[in-house]
Amino acid sequence: METPTQSEVSGGKRLVSAIAFLVLGVAVVSTVGFTLHSVSADSQKKSYATVNGTADVNGATLKHAFVSESVFPDDATARANHVNRTNTHPWPFYTEEHLVLPAHSLVTMTLKVYDGGEKLNTNYFAKVLGTVDNTMLVDGQQVSSLAPDAVQHTFTIHGLPTSTQDSLFVNIPLPKMSDAEMEKNGFHTVVFSFVTGGAGEYVWNCEYPCGDGTYAKFGAVMGQNGYMSGKVSVVNG
């Protein structure tokens, strides 16, 4: 039986080479990771609700916070309304992606919505849910649901209810604009209020199928972060 001849590389050199390689390998993987992280995660800027006074809800006195959002059918309409955002795709979008709300507060949200619309896939989301009284104000009028075929988008907050955090569910159907109104840059103003529980992480997304053409119209804009979905953080203090 032949025995292997000895290698000409010394043990010390080998060790140095191996450790250098390990460091390099870890560095490469981390670089890839952080690149991916920086091009994707939380690049969205946060929108903080402003607290202004208190409100009485069912006998309890809560902080009253205010936050606003807009929905535009495309970049051009947004720019016409002095919102400067350039998207990768010519898709409708919500202007604020990551809302930060105070815990145990009454949050009043104002949405200006500029888009046209059509029919929902699931009619349930034509109801106003999870707000105080389960109603919202559309251009000043109190409404508890829309016709399922007159919706432009929905603003729906939900999350992981199994976690230790309180559950938070809000669904706001947004009334569509007619084509004529859209021509003139018209919009509806939707106002609603809901009560937050303790601190927690949630998401919001749109339940109106606004992803053109593809199956169930949930492709394109609906399938990618940054347009029709985002996060909601409820924070203490």
């Binding site: 039986m1 032949e2 025995t3 292997p4 001849t5 000895q6 290698s7 000409e8 590389v9 080998r14 080479s17 191996a18 390689f21 390990l22 390998g25 870890v26 993987v29």
Partner: peptide
């Protein structure tokens, strides 16, 4: 696992040119 795999990769690359020269039938 990741660290282990990088070490294995080093071994494969390093030994390819610098390893001990193998006899024809090292395992018999």
């Amino acid at each position: 696992v990741g660290i282990g795999m990088i070490i294995l990769l080093w071994a494969v690359i390093h030994s390819w040119t610098k390893g001990t020269i193998a006899p024809m039938n090292p395992w018999g």
